[in-house]
């Protein structure tokens, strides 16, 4: 089965609040992709920033990206449906041209329908859609993260649409959400709310949020031996509390954590935990939480083994 190309387009977030949808005015990018292991990954970030703000994972066949049927004219809304928790994550399209929506939907459908084949060459992740059938598709479904070329129409149009905060394919009904958190009342949502759950999937468990200076410095202060040991892995002359503080708050350290987060979400958790002498298991492939849990379990096992031996 040929791996479908990534689908990425301009979209903002929206959230459900007291029976109405509130749109987040920030300009964003929503990206659908498939990891080398066949996991479907949906990411949202602000257009001007590279940091991913939200990330959701779906097993093959579980992806549900559904169009909101009764959205007010001029807005196009979709939601990710998490069938097990009943949670929904809402998005509003910021692509200027609604005519291309169907192509986006098709691209997402392809990703949702994709079945992973273990023999497949993982390098295909990057393969750009060189053989797309129609010209317009090739610009909608983008292989690179941040192309800003509009699907159709002129650049000028896009720019003016964007500056007003919403892109609504030339319809005159742009006022509805052009002013930040406008509240869109939607009757059709009433039935949804009954099974709306507070539970969110764990998308915020990231090394870059766990191994922060704030969390780690107290630990290193309490355990001087560990601090000394760890500072061997830092640039020379960085063993003082002060230097370590500086490093843990530096963008370079943050970048390294983000790189590792990324590698783990790409499914390399197993290989990384092997570096620590842990046996790779399925769990270590399941995001950062799974990765860390499996390391803790492996350390616990080792501890138990050691203490058993001591008893003997």
């Amino acid at each position: 089965m040929v791996r479908p190309v990534n689908v990425e387009f301009k979209a903002g977030k929206a959230r459900l609040e007291e029976k109405s949808l509130h749109s987040d005015a920030r300009k964003g990018i929503l990206k659908f992709s498939i990891s080398p292991e066949g996991i479907i990954c949906v990411q949202w970030r602000e257009r001007e920033k590279s940091a991913i703000e939200d990330e959701y994972y779906f097993a093959p066949g579980d992806l549900q990206f559904i169009k909101v049927k009764n959205a007010p004219s001029g807005t196009r809304m979709y939601y990710l449906n998490f069938s097990d928790s009943g949670t929904k994550e809402f998005f509003w399209l910021q692509e200027p041209n609604a005519d291309n929506d169907s192509k986006l939907e098709e691209g997402i459908k392809l990703i949702g329908a994709y079945e992973h084949d273990d023999d497949e060459d993982t390098m295909q992740v990057d393969t750009p859609p060189t053989t797309t059938n129609t010209q317009s598709t090739s610009t909608v479904i983008q292989p690179t993260p941040t192309s800003t070329i509009p699907t159709t129409g002129t650049t000028k149009n896009t720019a003016s649409n964007l500056s007003s905060g919403i892109t609504s394919s030339g319809s005159s009904n742009t006022s509805a959400s052009s002013s930040g958190n406008s509240s869109l009342n939607m009757d059709f949502l009433k039935n949804m709310i009954s099974n709306f759950s507070q539970n969110q999937p764990n998308k915020n468990v990231l090394l870059s949020k766990i191994l922060t200076g704030e969390n780690i410095l107290p630990f290193l202060r309490e355990n001087e031996e560990i601090r000394k040991e760890l500072s061997k892995h830092l640039p020379e002359g960085c063993d003082s509390q002060e230097k370590i503080f500086e490093i843990l708050h530096s963008p370079q350290y943050a970048q390294a954590l983000e790189g590792l987060d990324y590698a783990i979400f790409e499914g390399h958790g197993g290989e990384i935990s092997q570096l620590l002498g842990c046996e790779p298991n399925i769990q270590s492939m399941r995001g950062v939480e799974g990765f860390l849990t499996s390391i803790q379990e492996s350390v616990n096992k080792q501890k138990k083994k050691d203490s058993d031996q001591n008893k003997k």
Partner: peptide, 17 residues
């Protein structure tokens, strides 16, 4: 600097404690 060894050892130390 390659921070990977630091990060991995840090994770292990945290797990041990």
């Amino acid at each position: 600097h390659n921070f990977l060894p630091f990060i991995l050892n840090l994770i292990q130390s945290l797990a041990e404690k």
